[in-house]
Simulated assay, not measured.
Amino acid sequence: MIPETDLFATAFFLADHASVENGKVYVNGGFFNQMQFATFPAAANFSVVGVINVPWSAQNQLHKFQVLFTDADGHQLPGEFSGEFQITPNPDAGVGDPFLMPIAAAANAFVLAKPGHYSAVLMIDGEELSRWGFRVNATAAPGEVPGVPGGGSGPADIPWL
Rank of each mutant, 00 (worst) to 15 (best):
N53T: 14
V51Y: 02
F110W: 12
I87L: 03
A11P: 03
V25L: 06
L129A: 01
G79S: 01
K24C: 04
A44H: 03
H17S: 12
H75P: 01
M35Y: 06
M35S: 10
F31L: 07
A15V: 15
P91E: 13
A120N: 07
N108F: 01
M101V: 08
F110N: 06
F110Y: 14
E80R: 15
E80T: 13
L100T: 02
L100F: 01
D73P: 04
Y118F: 13
E80Y: 15
N45I: 10
F37G: 06
K24Q: 04
L62V: 12
A104E: 06
V111M: 11
S57A: 15
Q61D: 05
S19I: 11
D92R: 04
Q61M: 13
S82K: 13
D16V: 06
A105M: 08
V54Y: 05
F31N: 14
A72D: 14
E84V: 04
A15N: 13
R131A: 02
S119W: 08
Q36V: 11
I52K: 00
G83N: 07
A72G: 14
W56S: 08
A120H: 12
G79L: 11
G29I: 10
S47N: 12
T70G: 08
V51C: 01
V121E: 04
P98G: 08
G79R: 09
H17A: 06
E21V: 04
P98Y: 03
P91F: 02
P41A: 08
N108P: 00
S130Q: 01
A38T: 15
E80P: 04
L77D: 14
Q59S: 06
G126Y: 03
L122F: 10
S47F: 06
L100H: 04
V25N: 02
A105H: 12
L77I: 06
F69H: 03
S57D: 08
L100I: 01
D97N: 06
S57T: 11
W132S: 09
P91D: 09
D73A: 13
T88C: 02
Q36S: 11
Q66N: 07
G79P: 03
G94D: 09
A42I: 10
F46Q: 02
N22F: 07
T88Q: 09
I124H: 14
A43T: 11
T70I: 05
M35H: 05
P55R: 05
F37T: 05
A93E: 07
S119N: 15
Q36N: 08
